[in-house]
Amino acid sequence: MSPLSGTSARTGILRIVTHAMATLGGLAVAGIIGVTMADIIGRQFGMPVRGAYDLVRVLGAIAMACALPLTKAVKGHIAIEYFFQKMGRRGRAVVDTVMRLVLLALFGLLAWRFVLQGRGFLDSGEVTTTLHMPMFWVPWLAALACLVTAGVTLWHLLHPGRSMIRPR
């Protein structure tokens, strides 16, 4: 019945983590709405949300980073399929495999670089503009998201032609 019937425990964990990150991302979007509304209403009475600008940027980064695994899992990134569809079955299998291996490497690279970037923020003491909030953990969260996305890409590599999570 389910497109995922017969999948392993590892797939289960991957799906749970993907959904958990998406939930966090959704909360971050809700947070942007909440902070902005509170700021707009508050400043009419001289009580703005201090650093609303900073908060919106950080929440936006959290939302988009946490959305990465979900977007990959539903194959949400758009591509030009036209020429690919014209290839033979073998050709498609080869191109598809090579492409997914390249993407796997790319997400690995991104995860590694995000770790280093967070490390850089930590070492230099860089903080947000108004709230002076440390930011090193935001790239680290993005690194985690990239690792999970790499996992999803691996799943797609091992299960050709299927989406890990079915798009609605």
């Binding site: 700021d39 400043r43 001289g46 009580m47 703005p48 201090r50 650093g51 609303a52 600008y53 900073d54 503009t129 108004t130």
Partner: peptide, 11 residues
């Protein structure tokens, strides 16, 4: 702005 008693709006 805040120190002077105004309301700071970031944009």
């Amino acid at each position: 702005v805040t120190a002077l008693g105004g309301t700071a709006v970031g944009m």
